[in-house]
Design a binder for these strands. Structure first.
Length: 609
RNA sequence: UGGGGAUUGGUGUAACGGUAGCACGAGUGACUCUGACUCACUUAGUCUAGGUUCGAAUCCUAGAUCCCCAACCA
C-alpha cells in the first residue's frame, strides 16, 4: 500500500507550505537561534475529556501531529476541559494513552509541544472578559435559558436582550459576583455584544460564561463560572501560539466569532490607539495577542460504524458491547485491543486523504490497511477454529514426526520452527465437504490435499453419527511427500500436484484456546439511515466465540503486555490475523481475530457474501 | 425564507486555463506449499444549462442536489 511517499500535497499541506513560503508565522528563531530559518508550524489536538477517542479522532491526531513532524514544528495535546459536568479524569487518562499509542508525540521527541489544559487558562480568560466588558464589548445578561431561546429570533428577525445596554459598572459588579459564586446555576451569563441581527446566529450575542457549581477534575472547586467552548477555544490556541488551528467543518460558521473575540481583545492594545470616546486604559499597554488561522476539514466517517460519542456511550451504558474497548467498537482503545497496529491506522488516514468533502470511507479500507501491516510483520502459525478429526490410517499409532514450518514467508529472517505430526489430527470443518461443489480444492472423499508443511493425504472414508452428521474422517498419507513437497521425477519436475493446501493440528499436541471472532457491529453501511435509530441495524452475530486448538509453539509464545496493553500478534494461516486478548490467563488462552484474510473462495462459493 | 460550506469512475483522491491521473474496489489472467501475498491487464468519471477562450474539471452567469447553523454542549 502506498504509505504515500510521492502523494501530492493535501490542501492543509498546501496552505502550510504557502504560509511557510510567505513567512506568515515567522520562524522558530526566537526560541532557538539554530532554527532561525525554520518557519513556525504549531498544531494541536484539542479533545474534550468526555469519552474515549475513536477513529475519527485518529484522523485529527495524525493530521495535526503529522504536520508538525513534516515541517519541523510542534504539536500540543490540549484538553478542552471547560465543562465539569461532563468531564472525567478517566477520560483524560485514556486520551493521553491513546494519543501516545498512535504516535502523537506531544511530550517526547523533536516535535513535542507539550500537554495543556484549557482550565489552566481560566484566570487569563477571566481577565480578557473583564477587559471586554470594560470596552463595552461584553455584558452580563440575566435572561434565563428559555428566555434567550425564545428571544433568539429567526434568520430575518433579530434577537433581543433587555440587558445588552446596561451600564458597564453594573456588568462588572455582577461579573465579580459570578466569580465569587454568589449566584446559582442559570441565574445569569456573560454575553459578547456583537450583533443581534446577524444572519450568522453565532454572532447574536453568544454566551461566553455560564454558572456551573460543580467539581472540576483539574481546578477543583475554585471556579463556579465556566467559559463556553466558543469563547475559550480560540483563546487557548492563541495563548499556545498555535499557527494552524485545524478543526472540523461544523466550526466554519464559528470562525467569524473567534476572529471577533481576538480582534476585540486586540483593539486598543499595543499602542495602536483607541476608538474615539474610549478613555486611555490599562490594556493599552498590553501587547496584542496571537491570531491563529483556523482551517476546517471533513470528518472521517467509515461505513458500518457509528461515531458520535453519545451513541457510543449509549452502547457502553446499555451493555450492547462489553465496554469502550470492546474489540468491535470504533474506539482507539478497542482497535488496540483487537490487534490493529498503530501504523495501520496512520497509513489508513493518509491513504484516504483530507478534504472539505463530506464522504463515507469504506471501512474495508481500514481492514486492508491492517492486513497490509500484519502481513509483513506477523509470525505464521496454525490453529483450527472448528475442528474435524482426521485419522491417518497408515500412520503408526505412536509415531510422532517433527516437521519444519516457515515462520514468515514475507520475512526470511524469521526462520523456521518444528511442528509435531501424529496419527490423529484436526483440520478445519470448512476444509471438508462430502459432496463438494465445482472448484472446491480441499478435502472430499477420494481427493488428495497437502497438509501445510507436512504430507499429502487422501480421504478414504467418512465417519458419521446416528443423525448422519460427519464426526470424523479417515485418510491415508503419502510417505514420499514429507515436508509437503511432491517427489521429484527424473525430469526434475514434481511427480504430482495437488491444488489444495490446508492447515492442521496434531490432536495429541493441540492446546485448547478461546477465540473470539468479530464481525461488523452494524449490518447497514450507514447505521440508522433507514429507521432513524442506529440500534435497529445492530448485527446480531457480530461476536462468535469458539473453542479452538492451537499449536504448542503458539501457546508458548502467546503473550500479553500489561504495560503497552498490546497482545502478541500472529497470523493463523488461512484464517486471518489474531492477537492475544487481555482476558488471557495462565492455562486459558484467549485470542481475538483482528481481521480475516481475504478469501476469494468465499466470494465464489457464496456470491454477495 | 437568511447565513456558511460542498459537488471529478462504484468509493476515496489528484489536476490550480493546456494529454482527466493515482489508490481502493470489481473483473480477467499469471504465480503460489496460505483460494493469502505478489504481478499483469481490464473496467469506469468532471452535477445541469448557458457563456468567455484557440483551448474549461478549472474562469463567468443561472440552476440542481447534499451538509452545517437559532445549547447556558464541544
Amino acid at each position: 500500500m502506498p504509505a504515500s511517499e510521492e502523494r501530492s500535497l493535501n490542501f492543509l499541506e498546501q496552505i502550510v507550505e504557502a504560509d511557510n513560503a510567505s513567512k506568515k508565522w515567522g520562524t522558530w528563531g526566537a526560541r532557538d537561534p539554530s532554527r532561525a530559518d525554520v518557519p513556525q508550524v504549531h498544531t494541536r489536538f484539542p479533545p474534550e475529556p468526555n469519552g474515549y477517542l475513536h477513529v475519527g479522532h485518529a484522523k485529527s491526531i495524525c493530521l495535526n501531529s503529522g504536520l508538525a513532524k513534516k515541517y519541523g514544528g510542534k504539536f500540543n495535546l490540549r484538553f478542552d476541559d471547560t465543562n465539569p459536568a461532563k468531564e472525567e479524569q478517566e477520560y483524560v487518562d485514556s486520551i493521553i494513552r491513546d494519543v501516545k499509542w498512535l504516535g502523537g508525540d506531544f511530550d517526547t521527541g523533536p516535535n513535542a509541544g507539550g500537554l495543556y489544559f484549557a482550565s489552566n487558562y481560566f484566570e487569563q480568560m477571566y481577565a480578557f472578559t473583564e477587559e471586554l466588558v470594560k470596552k463595552g464589548k461584553a455584558y452580563v445578561c440575566q435572561l434565563s435559558g428559555e428566555e434567550v431561546s425564545a428571544r433568539r429570533g429567526t434568520p430575518t428577525v433579530p434577537a433581543t436582550s433587555p440587558f445588552r445596554d446596561r451600564p458597564i459598572e453594573e456588568s462588572l459588579k455582577l461579573l465579580a459576583e459570578m466569580r465569587d459564586g454568589k449566584h446559582p446555576n442559570g441565574a445569569m451569563t456573560v454575553r459578547a455584544k456583537i450583533d443581534l441581527a446577524s444572519p450568522n446566529f453565532n454572532l447574536r450575542d453568544p454566551v461566553m460564561y455560564r454558572i456551573i457549581h460543580e467539581h472540576h477534575h483539574n481546578t477543583g472547586d475554585k471556579w463556579s463560572m465556566y467559559p463556553m467552548y466558543d469563547w475559550a477555544h480560540g483563546l487557548e490556541d492563541s495563548l499556545e501560539g498555535i499557527t494552524h488551528s485545524i478543526c472540523t467543518l461544523e466550526f466554519e460558521n464559528h470562525r467569524p466569532l473567534y476572529d471577533w473575540f481576538i480582534d476585540s481583545i486586540n483593539e486598543g492594545r499595543g499602542g495602536t490607539g483607541l476608538p474615539p470616546g474610549v478613555p486611555s486604559s490599562s490594556w493599552s499597554s498590553l501587547p496584542k495577542i496571537h491570531h491563529p488561522q483556523q482551517i476546517e476539514f471533513a470528518k472521517l466517517r467509515p461505513t458500518y460504524t457509528v461515531m458520535s460519542k453519545r451513541n457510543l456511550l449509549k452502547m457502553v451504558e446499555e451493555k450492547t458491547v462489553s465496554g469502550w474497548d470492546d474489540p468491535r467498537m470504533p474506539t482507539i482503545s478497542a482497535m488496540r485491543r483487537r490487534g490493529y497496529p498503530p501504523e495501520a491506522l496512520r497509513n489508513f488516514v493518509t491513504d484516504v486523504g483530507v478534504t472539505k468533502v463530506e464522504s463515507y470511507i469504506d471501512v474495508g479500507r481500514l481492514e486492508n490497511a491492517v492486513r497490509d501491516v500484519l502481513n509483513k510483520t506477523t509470525p505464521r502459525t496454525m490453529a483450527v477454529l472448528k475442528p474435524l478429526k482426521v485419522t491417518i490410517e497408515n500412520w503408526p499409532e505412536d509415531k510422532i514426526d517433527e516437521l519444519d514450518f516457515v515462520i514468515n514467508p514475507e520475512d526470511a529472517a524469521a526462520g523456521k520452527r518444528k511442528v509435531p505430526f501424529s496419527r490423529v489430527i484436526y483440520i478445519e470443518q470448512d476444509d471438508f465437504i462430502e459432496n463438494p461443489p465445482k472448484k472446491f480444492f480441499r478435502l472430499a472423499p477420494g481427493t488428495e490435499v497437502r497438509l501445510r508443511w507436512a504430507y499429502f493425504i487422501t480421504c478414504t472414508g467418512v465417519e458419521k453419527d446416528a443423525a448422519g452428521n460427519v464426526t470424523g474422517i479417515r485418510a491415508t498419507y503419502d510417505p514420499a511427500t514429507r515436508g509437503g513437497d511432491a517427489p521429484v521425477g527424473p525430469d526434475g519436475k514434481p511427480t504430482k500436484k495437488v491444488k489444495g493446501t490446508i492447515h492442521w493440528i496434531s490432536a495429541k499436541h493441540a492446546v485448547p484456546a478461546e477465540v473470539r471472532l468479530f464481525d461488523r457491529l452494524f449490518t447497514a453501511e450507514i447505521p440508522g439511515d433507514r429507521t432513524g435509530n442506529y440500534l435497529d441495524d445492530l448485527n446480531p452475530s457480530s461476536l462468535e466465540v469458539v473453542q479452538a486448538f492451537v499449536e504448542p509453539w503458539l501457546a508458548e509464545n502467546a503473550r500479553y503486555n500489561n504495560e503497552t496493553l498490546e497482545g502478541e500478534r500472529f497470523q493463523f494461516e488461512r484464517l486471518g490475523y489474531f492477537n492475544v486478548d487481555k482476558d488471557s490467563k495462565p492455562g486459558k488462552l484467549v485470542f481475538n481475530r483482528t481481521v480475516t484474510l481475504k478469501d476469494s473462495w468465499m466470494k465464489e462459493a457464496k456470491p454477495g457474501a
